[in-house]
């Protein structure tokens, strides 16, 4: 079942020079296993086509159910020089949540039974 990362993750982003860091956090440990497998550096690089002009590095933080992506050459020269509206990459956290991922129905069901916060996903899928 294809869902947007928005349904199973949250995120925060910021600047590190001309690179943006995008932290992607799964809402549940099962979802972490999934994004760890599915959300590769290559897929993120492809997603941010035209925004991230450099390489993408990926780091794993299983303790926080999170992946940290470093998007190089992304902020138009960095915080103080950049002419970009989002010179610090603050909205790239929302942008990564646009990505879609295949979630096996079983994973979705088991987790949603546990977590009320994911009601929205179930509702959407049962339509």
């Amino acid at each position: 079942m294809k869902v947007q990362l928005l349904e199973i993750c949250h995120a925060r982003s910021g600047d590190k020079g001309d690179a943006a860091n995008v932290g992607l956090i799964a809402r549940d440990e099962r979802f972490y296993t999934l994004i760890k497998k599915e959300i590769t550096a290559a897929k993120v690089k492809k997603h941010f086509k035209g925004i991230c002009l450099g390489k993408v590095e990926r780091y794993e933080l299983p303790n926080l159910w999170a992946l940290n992506f470093l998007l190089h050459n992304t902020l138009g020269g960095g915080g103080t020089v950049s002419l970009k509206q989002d010179a610090q990459g603050k909205t790239l956290a929302a942008a990564i949540l646009r990505m879609e991922v295949n979630v096996p129905p079983a994973v979705l069901r088991k987790t949603t039974q546990k977590q009320k916060s994911l009601k929205r996903v179930v509702k959407k899928k049962s339509k």
Partner: peptide, 16 residues
Amino acid sequence: RASVAEQLLYEIGDPR
């Protein structure tokens, strides 16, 4: 947990 985790991911590079 989520609010603290988000801040922990803010402006970091290699988490190690």
